[in-house]
C-alpha cells in the first residue's frame, strides 16, 4: 500500500508549522514518521495536509537541567536513549527506550512522536505518565503545558487541540538514589507489549518515601497503578507488601479479552511484572545494583 495524496508543507520553524496547523482542517505532523507513515501506507490515515518538521532545526535540541530532561520534538528515540547526560539524569528513560521496537525504528522515531501518537500499548506514554512528565503544546494562539495525566485521553487520542503541536517533552530528573525499573512482555521481541510496567521509587531509611508505578498495554491509555503504589508507600517493600501491590494492580486491566489474549491472563501478567519491577527498583534504591 502507498500513502494517499496530500498537500505537503515543509515547515522551517515552529511558528510556520503552527500556522500551517491552524490553516488546515485535517493536518498531521510528520516528525520521525515511524508511527504515522505505517498508518498512511495502509491508508488508515489520509490527511489533507502533512506538515513535515524535518527542517525545523529549533526542534532538534536535547537538554538536561536540574529538574528536567527536555526532549524537543525532532529528537530521535535513539539519540535520547544513548545520550550520557540523559542516562545520568534519569536512567529509567534509556531502560524504557531500549524496549521500544527495534534500533532501525528508534533511529528515526522521535520521543515526541510516540507521545503524540498515544498508543495505549506503547512504552513512552507510560513512562511519561509514571514520571509525571509534561509536554509543551504550541499553536498560533500561544503555548501551554499539559501534564501527562491530562494528555492521554484514549487509544491514539490526546487532548491536544487540532491546531496544536508538541514542541517539547519533559521528563523529570530522578532523585539521587532513586530506584527504577521497566519491564514488559511482548510475544515477539520489539513488539507492542501485552503489558509493560514502569517503576520509580525512593527510599528513606529503608522505607518507601515515594513511588510511581505506571503501565502500558492494559487499557486504552497509559495507567498509573495508584492503589499498587499505596500498598507500598511507607513500607519496606517486603514480600507481603509487594503481594498486596500485585493484587491491587490486577484491577487496572481494562483491555477486554480479544482473539489471542484473555483479560485474566493480562491481569496475571501485570501482577507478575509489577512484582518483578518493584523488586528490581527497590534493589537498585538499596544500592543492590
Amino acid at each position: 500500500m502507498k500513502p494517499a495524496p496530500f498537500d505537503y508543507i515543509a515547515a522551517s520553524s515552529v511558528a510556520e508549522a503552527a500556522r500551517a496547523r491552524a490553516d488546515s482542517d485535517y493536518s498531521v505532523l510528520l516528525a520521525g514518521g515511524q508511527s504515522l507513515i505505517p498508518t498512511m501506507n495502509f491508508r488508515l490515515a489520509q490527511p489533507d495536509v502533512v506538515i513535515d518538521l524535518s527542517r525545523v532545526s529549533e526542534l532538534r535540541t536535547l537538554e538536561v537541567d536540574h529538574s528536567w530532561v527536555r526532549v524537543a520534538a525532532m529528537v530521535t528515540q535513539q539519540k535520547t536513549e544513548l545520550d550520557p547526560a540523559v542516562k545520568a539524569a534519569n536512567p529509567l528513560i534509556a531502560e524504557t527506550l531500549a524496549r521500544v521496537a527495534h534500533p532501525a525504528i528508534r533511529s528515526r522515531g522521535t520521543v515526541a512522536g510516540s507521545i503524540a501518537h498515544a498508543d495505549g500499548a506503547a512504552e513512552l506514554p507510560a513512562l511519561l505518565t509514571t514520571l509525571d512528565g509534561e509536554v509543551t503544546a504550541v499553536s498560533s494562539r500561544g503555548s501551554r503545558t499539559i501534564s501527562a495525566e491530562d494528555l492521554f485521553e484514549f487509544h491514539l487520542t490526546t487532548t491536544l487541540e487540532e491546531d496544536e503541536l508538541i514542541s517539547e517533552v519533559r521528563f523529570p530528573v530522578l532523585a539521587p538514589g532513586a530506584g527504577y525499573a521497566f519491564d514488559e512482555f511482548a510475544r515477539r521481541h520489539g513488539d507492542f507489549a501485552l503489558a509493560g510496567v514502569c517503576v520509580a521509587l525512593t527510599l528513606q531509611d529503608g522505607n518507601c518515601e515515594s513511588i510511581a508505578i505506571g503501565a502500558c498495554g492494559i487499557g486504552s491509555r497509559p495507567v498509573r497503578l495508584r492503589e499498587a503504589e499505596a500498598a507500598l508507600m511507607g513500607g519496606t517493600i517486603n514480600d507481603e507488601e509487594i503481594a498486596a501491590a500485585q493484587e491491587a494492580a490486577r484491577g487496572y486491566v481494562t483491555t477486554e479479552t480479544d482473539m489471542t489474549t484473555t483479560q485474566a491472563y493480562r491481569r496475571h501478567l501485570l501482577a507478575g511484572l509489577v512484582g518483578r519491577t518493584v523488586r528490581t527498583a527497590a534493589a537498585r534504591a538499596r544500592g543492590g545494583e
Binding site: P3, Y8, A10, L30, G33, I37, D52, S54, I105
Partner: peptide, 12 residues
C-alpha cells in the same frame, strides 16, 4: 544509522 526506507518519505 539503519532505518526503514518504507517508513521514510523522500521529502524528509
Amino acid at each position: 544509522h539503519p532505518a526503514r526506507s518504507c517508513l521514510t518519505l523522500v521529502g524528509q
